[in-house]
């Protein structure tokens, strides 16, 4: 069943990229400004839901052939991996490290292991939301 909502279909092609880009920005901004893994993930999922509404499920899963359950698993691995990594440095579980690096052109950049943890959160949230919506949508 193809939907025949031309306006939405055309608009979504542009809007989707903007939303996804914005969600990625929001995710990375999380440590300093409003945002983070939860919001970023939800926003990405929201964009995908919009795509689902515009097209049908089969088309979407053809364009984006992700297995969202595996994405959830990878996300969990990221989160647990970063937390457990602390043990190898003889500090308690979940201790995060950060450092500042001076790069040419880009200037000072700070690196956080917390960002990797947050990436895990991001992946889990996207994976979970999409698994839920997709399974319910596919059922029939």
């Amino acid at each position: 069943m193809r939907s025949n909502n031309i306006i939405l279909e055309t608009a979504i092609k542009v809007i989707l990229f903007i939303i996804v880009l914005f969600s990625v920005y929001i995710f990375f901004a999380g440590h300093y400004y409003p945002g983070g893994g939860f919001i970023g993930g939800l926003m990405t999922a929201g964009a995908l839901v919009l795509l689902l509404i515009a097209y049908d499920i089969k088309t979407v899963s053809m364009i984006l052939p992700f297995n969202y359950r595996i994405m959830t698993g990878i996300g969990l691995l990221f989160a647990i991996g970063t937390s457990a990594g602390a043990i190898f440095f003889n500090v308690p579980f979940l201790t995060h490290a950060f450092g500042h690096i001076d790069l040419p052109i880009l200037g000072e950049i700070s690196l956080h292991t917390a960002t990797i943890f947050d990436l895990g959160v991001y992946l889990v949230v996207v994976g979970v939301s999409m698994t839920i919506i997709q399974t319910i949508g596919e059922d029939e």
């Binding site: 440590h31 300093y32 409003p34 983070g36 893994g37 950060f98 700070s110 917390a114 943890f117 959160v121």
Partner: peptide, 19 residues
């Protein structure tokens, strides 16, 4: 934690276990 967004820092760092 070298962050500025307290809510996010609490989530991923101070209270990471919850998350």
């Amino acid at each position: 934690a070298a962050g500025k967004n307290m809510v996010n820092v609490i989530l991923v760092d101070f209270r990471g276990f919850d998350t």
